[in-house]
């Protein structure tokens, strides 16, 4: 019914492979180990599940569908956001799709700050579902089923890091009528879509000011925002590990971000994601104005 799946993880691996027929998804599971030449550094191997999921039971010619790469990690392990922060590496995917199917970019939910001594990384504790849109040409043959394949590479870390690879696949019939949804998968996809950072409303005013060794990101949403965390999209601009100082303003919030020691040139844009109160996430692309002066002090309360 399904094609063969393979799993690799470098030199040492044991792979167990199964396909979940109900969700029409195939899971690739692997146990990872680390080479034996560092006896004092034996690693307790994490069990990482990578699955390719969809909420639709069939694809429709001429319509897009969402697919998702689901990473399930043991407690305490994490994978990384598109900017991993001070260490780590984001998952990557290489799609292998039949003619007429085209994959769009992975969609990244707002990450968490993962703090360790002197370092802050950005990622997802215990797992994440990374969605991607797939465009289906109207010329795709209606008679056949199609197989979507993805070569996934990722780095899973807790105190230590273990790289992994998974080849996952999904077999779907081509349908001309409206698509039937798998209710469980649909609920999961809906929840995940709701967590994706949204474009900022046009009425918001967003700007950043470069002041000495800091950027002050000002976001005017129209109401005072009590909490806000910024996640930078581009590495090397801000000091990830430095505490962010969020100061509510009457119309929004100011977030003071310490510049990175590695930042040698002015930047024109500060790009990233802001999350208010741990739930509402927005995409930020703030023009940066240079300010020679120290600027106003931003005190909360």
């Amino acid at each position: 019914m399904f094609l063969n799946r393979t799993v690799e993880s470098g030199r040492l691996f044991r792979a167990a492979i199964f396909c979940g027929v109900a969700t029409m998804a195939c899971a690739a599971s692997a146990h990872f180990g680390v080479a034996k030449n560092n006896p004092q550094n034996e690693v307790s191997a994490p069990h990482v599940d990578v699955q390719l999921l969809t909420e639709q039971k069939a694809i429709q010619r001429g319509h897009s569908l969402w697919v998702g790469l689901q990473f399930q990690l043991p407690s305490g392990w994490h994978v990384y956001w598109q900017n991993p922060g001070d260490s780590g590496e984001p998952p990557t995917v290489k799609w292998n799709l039949p003619t007429g199917l085209h994959a769009g970019d992975l969609q990244w939910p707002a990450p968490h700050r993962l703090e360790s001594p002197s370092l802050v990384d950005y990622g997802y504790q215990d797992g994440v579902l990374l969605l991607a849109p797939i465009r289906v040409d109207s010329t795709v043959s209606p008679a056949t089923a199609v197989t979507l394949q993805a070569d996934v590479r990722y780095l899973a870390c807790r105190e230590i890091c273990v790289p992994g690879k998974a080849n996952v696949a999904l077999n779907l019939p081509v349908q001309s009528g409206s698509a039937t949804l798998d209710s469980n998968a649909h609920a999961l996809f809906e929840k995940t879509r709701a967590q994706l950072p949204k474009p900022t409303p046009a009425a918001w005013r967003i700007r950043a000011q470069s002041m000495g060794n800091a950027f002050v990101l000002s976001i005017a949403t129209g109401k005072s925002e009590r909490e806000g965390v910024f996640f930078p999209l581009d590495p090397g601009e801000m000091d990830n590990a430095a505490p962010q100082k969020a100061s509510p303003t009457t119309a929004g919030i100011d977030i003071r971000l310490q510049k990175s020691d590695q930042l040698l040139k002015p930047i024109a844009q500060l790009r990233g994601v802001v999350e208010f109160g741990g739930s509402r996430a927005y995409e930020i692309n703030a023009p940066v104005a240079e300010s020679g002066a120290q600027g106003p002090s931003h005190q909360s309360q």
Binding site: D86, S87, G88, P117, S118, L119, P235, G236
Partner: peptide, 13 residues
């Protein structure tokens, strides 16, 4: 002269 280092976080105390 400067690039973003990559790898595992240094395992500080």
């Amino acid at each position: 002269p400067v690039s973003q280092p990559y790898g595992c976080g240094v395992k500080y105390a």
